[in-house]
Design a protein around this nucleic acid. Structure first.
Lengths: 339, 339
DNA sequence: GTAGGGTGGTTAAGCGCTTAACGGATTACC
DNA sequence: GGTAATCCGTTAAGCGCTTAACCACCCTAC
């Protein structure tokens, strides 16, 4: 059987009422009697009616969709479990509701901006999620100019922009204290690109905590989240004059990559070298030795961001929401510092 | 500055013509003179005009979007690089055009069907991509009933349904010949769930080739793509009476997981045991020893599927497209069989 | 001079839905 | 009994765009 998409006027005809009445009935608003409403609804789902999003959007101005664009090179995004977990969380929060997710990956920031602008122009989205905020992020300016509801997944750096964040600073501190307790003094943080706000936040926390703990040799080096860059940087750091005894990475991929480098250099993990990954994932559990990692509630963050965004779209004030705290999961790549 | 979204009537007013003329001009159709067209277009992009997708959809019936829903548990999808690579390919093919991607992950097949049906009902998509086809897949029936253009990412098992596929059978054969050449006789294939068509295809090819090569002890066992299940199955297989000397996996995650199990059982890879992963990824390169893997052109497949889908939406006949062949990338987990 | 054929536009209907404004019956109230 | 309020429904406009149908005008042909 081939189906024809029914419209409200089909329903109206079948029920012997006007399309207006059908609309009121289907949207659960006053204006029709209870029996009529029920009759209309029965007919509607007997006919398999589903509202046309285009028509609805056109008349009420809402798109019933939110947008997410991720600007990371395809090469990097493929491996990193982070985004898929995030999307899982997002979808979970969207499930059951009328909203859909428009998703795009781009490979440069101009394309990202263009995507947001286009979605806005086409009235395709009611709001957007922003990830990987950078300093003076042009997206902030953009959503403000367009009056496009937006929620940042990250620290509250822009005063009046709603966001959902986790307390990475404390986590950084915890990791350092943990490593120091194991006797480590020379600790290097292998961070993501400087431009990201979250990179800066963690680096600042790292430097501050290191100073407090008198780790004079602690320092930060940068890579771009890819395994290649991480391998290069790690190799350089480990073959330097006084190599560190512990490395803290900004994602899981880099940590795994470093594991390979350590192996290649003849270093035993964790006897000669301790490693900590940021963002726990199956990847961390899978490799041998299994990676100690800082676990953050990623899916939870995604879901919280969606709820917040829906509220903001609904006119709620900009809130800055903190989700549950990161947690260090010690596995087999952290141990007593070599003497 | 706060922007107001301009409509074609704003343009019409500014140009002193009717909205009809504006529409003709902007869509590059005859009906306006060249000078007028140019004037209109100038004004349009001076005003930053972007067509309202809702209005356009409503009037021409096209949604300018395609849909993809992936039905895999969040737990699995997070790790597997496959889907992100696929999406990269899809986005690449979509870039520049007017189409957007609607993406959804669900955790059961009913929800998946419901998603497709809803998108269709809401006229949100012009066509959809189908991945992970199963035997007698209800989605096939659905898209046919709804007359919803669809392209399958997988083997041509449904006669009149367009698809994009790679020749896995030959690849399976190649892998087996490669292993046999290394002296392996007891080879086990750790497959994904039986229900998937691609699992069946590869298993059939495996069995056939094994018979041809006189591998009387070759067999197939099943897991669900997750690292846990793979670990369980691998452990069982490796501790059985006459354990295999080579394992061939249906994805990368399971192969990595097996690497851990082998380690745990005191087996050296590749001296005691050879491993081959299906679908190469950074994951395979990252682990030590690096995994030998069958590389398939995943992003290419995604892009090809999009192009085909756009053609089909445009009314082209159902084509069954083969992309470039898989290729075995030998790394460090395959070696001479133990004697 | 008029019929015929382009050009270069305009008009208006319609896509499917929402919603303010209206109106005919009932019911409530004093 | 008259007026007001309430209930249940209809009407019609409008969201922004496409497109068939129409029209005014100029040009050419015989």
């Amino acid at each position: 059987m081939v189906v024809k998409r029914p419209t409200i006027s089909d329903i109206a005809k079948a029920a012997g009422v006007s399309t207006g009445a059908v609309s009121y009935a289907l949207n659960n608003r006053p204006g029709v009697s209870e029996p009529t409403r029920r009759r209309i609804m029965d007919i509607a789902d007997r006919l398999g009616w589903v509202p046309s999003s285009a028509a609805r959007s056109l008349s009420d101005g809402r798109a019933n969709a939110i947008g997410l664009v991720v600007d990371r090179p395809a090469r990097v995004i493929g491996v990193e479990p982070y985004f898929m977990q995030l999307i899982s969380g997002i979808q979970g929060a969207l499930a059951g509701g009328p909203m859909s997710l428009l998703f795009q990956v781009t490979d440069n920031s101009a394309a990202e901006l263009a995507a947001y602008r286009r979605w806005w122009g086409e009235r395709r989205v009611d709001g957007v999620l922003l990830v990987d905020l950078i300093q003076n992020d042009p997206r902030v300016e953009l959503v403000r100019e367009l009056r496009l509801p937006a929620v940042v997944l990250g620290e509250p750096v822009v005063p009046d922009l709603p966001c959902v964040w986790t307390d990475d600073e404390t986590a950084v501190e915890e990791v350092l204290e943990y490593l120091v307790a194991l006797g480590h003094q020379r600790i290097v943080r292998v961070a993501g690109p400087t431009k990201f706000v979250h990179t800066q936040t963690r680096s600042r926390a790292f430097t501050t905590s290191a100073a407090r703990l008198n780790l004079t040799e602690a320092r930060v080096v940068h890579a771009d989240y890819s395994d290649e860059a991480a391998a290069r940087v790690t190799r350089r750091v480990l073959t330097s004059g006084t190599p560190p005894t512990a490395l803290v990475f900004d994602n899981d991929v880099m940590a795994v990559s470093a594991l390979g480098v350590a192996h290649e250099l003849g270093l035993t993990v964790p006897d000669d070298l301790s490693l900590v990954a940021w963002d726990d994932s199956a990847l961390c559990r899978l490799v041998r030795p299994a990676l100690s990692a800082v676990r953050r509630p990623i899916a939870e963050r995604g879901a919280a961001a969606v709820h917040l965004l829906l509220d903001v779209i609904g006119g709620a004030p900009a809130e800055q929401l903190k989700t549950s705290d990161p947690e260090l999961v010690p596995r087999s790549t952290t141990g007593q510092a070599p003497t």
